[in-house]
Design a protein around this nucleic acid. Structure first.
Length: 421
RNA sequence: GUGGGCGUAGCUCAGUGGUUAGAGCACUGGACUGUGGCUCCAGGGGUCGGGGGUUCGAAUCCCCUCGCCCACCCCA
């Protein structure tokens, strides 16, 4: 047992029935995305390391210590994608999509990888579905996409999500603010917690997000980004709030919210849920605007907005009773002649869109076959034995209430589909 | 990277120095030879996470190690 090969830390096998929850979220999200005009982009899971180190920021945690980086046999440094946006932008430029339409609405899905210590709602391989709008400067789309996200959450039964929004300004106005904030923190250096003194150099904005009560106290009078952002950014943020009101999306301004990636500009947001089911986590989806990224990667200046949903986190909150399942029909043939006949019947049922399984164990007793049907959660058992064959019929047993009736072989599919007994 | 909790059957766990390590659930079969769930009976299944030590004797005590979970950090 101990020398068996197991999956590696933070890489989980997602088995039924849990896998169904993930599929349900993904399916729902894609359906909603599609209704908002998004199309799928299928992207590689591995990219050149440089793509991430350049776009996410050299000093971000992800780039510094969370990337799965390795060299392939040719010696090229590669990285398992830690997030989706960089790849989308890379592909957008590589295929010159900006020459094909002024605005693109794209979505992606799949696993992301970050080397972190796993805990509830956080894994080394985790799944996201995300969207990106490229070529629209907002702020109306920003709000539209948040509204789209709220629709998805509502459909999968996640209650109590709050949208926290903030403006991070643009490179022009963020720089002075950062400096001013750096100076402010410098003076408090001795009294701030260890984490915050470390944050000061790397990313001073993070200190604003510290949970330590002393730090919170000390930073109550910290400079507010609102006093620094330029007119354009300020108008954009006001526009966003108005648009959110227009869409009826409840939101909360959080001037201290910070994003972990450097490429964000202006709008940043998080969908936050306060629930013990999420463990220490509270963000289930997040995103924002990245108006400078396309240009930085060699494309034309292109304003963009996007977000990603953390599927495992949403899975912790979904209302599982909303995940419906088609009834399962379990076909049990008894004897050689019925067995030969059964394959055709099962095939016809499946063709008609019904979910059907057959007892495949040869010579199994009816009792054990019934037991298997029960365990598989069959809604109905279809019994085909010598008696039935003689009168060209089928015994249908309702596994919930135990009632049975005979239906003719020629018409039973029709009858079952019309009204389930 | 740091801290805490936990590793005994497929799962949930009992057993804290003394025969051959147990229970419930699950699995297979039977009672009930064409009828599941409830009941009863039987059966299969264990390097007690791994290694070392103490002891006449270790699942149990000591040391080391690996793994899982949770939290910090950070994030989806």
């Amino acid at each position: 047992m101990s020398n068996r090969i197991t999956a590696i830390r933070g890489f989980n096998d997602i088995l039924p029935p849990e896998s169904r929850v993930l599929s349900h979220i993904e399916y729902t999200a894609i359906e909603v995305f599609t209704s908002y005009g998004f199309s799928e982009m299928r992207l590689p899971v591995v990219e050149k390391t440089e793509l991430f180190s350049r776009t996410l920021g050299e000093t971000t945690d992800i780039v510094e210590k969370q990337m799965y980086t390795f060299s392939d046999l040719s010696g090229t440094p590669l990285t398992l994608r830690p997030e989706g946006t960089a790849g989308v932008v890379r592909a957008y430029i590589e295929h010159a999509l900006y020459t094909k339409a002024p605005i693109h609405r794209l979505f992606y899905r799949g696993p992301m990888f970050r080397y972190e210590r796993p805990q509830k709602g956080r894994y080394r391989q985790f799944y996201q579905v995300g969207v990106e709008v490229l070529g629209d400067e907002g702020p109306f789309v920003d709000a539209e996409l948040m509204e789209m996200l709220s629709v998805i959450l509502e459909r999968v039964g996640v209650k109590g999500a709050v949208f926290e929004i903030n403006s991070l300004g643009c490179p022009g106005c963020r720089q002075p603010f950062r400096q001013r904030l750096g100076g402010f923190l410098e003076e408090l250096k001795e009294r701030l917690c260890g984490d915050c003194t470390r944050r000061m150099e790397r990313n001073p904005l993070r200190a604003l997000d510290c949970k330590n009560p002393t730090c919170r106290e000390l930073t109550t009078n910290a400079p507010d980004i609102y006093d620094y952002i330029c007119e354009g950014c300020s108008a954009h943020f006001d526009g966003l709030r108005a648009a959110l009101d227009g869409f009826g999306v409840p939101h909360r301004v959080n001037h201290r919210m910070v994003r972990g990636l450097d490429y964000y500009t202006r709008t940043a947001f998080e969908a936050v849920v306060d629930s013990p089911r999420l463990g220490a986590q509270n963000t289930i989806a997040a995103g924002g605007r990245y108006d400078g990224l396309v240009k930085e990667l060699g494309g034309p200046q292109t304003p963009c907005f996007g977000f990603a949903i953390g599927m495992e986190r949403v899975a912790l909150l979904v209302d599982r009773s909303l995940i419906g399942e088609e009834p399962l029909f379990y076909l049990i043939p008894l004897g050689t002649e019925p067995q030969q006949r059964a394959a055709g019947l099962a095939s016809a049922m499946r063709m008609a869109g019904m979910r059907c399984m057959m007892e495949t164990k040869r010579g199994a007793s009816l009792k054990s076959a019934m037991k298997r049907a029960d365990r598989l959660g069959a809604a109905y058992v279809l019994l085909l034995g010598e008696d039935e064959m003689k009168e060209r019929s089928l015994t249908v047993r309702n596994m919930t209430d135990g009632t049975q009736r005979r239906l003719p072989l020629d018409t039973f599919i029709e009858e079952l589909r019309q009204g389930l007994p």
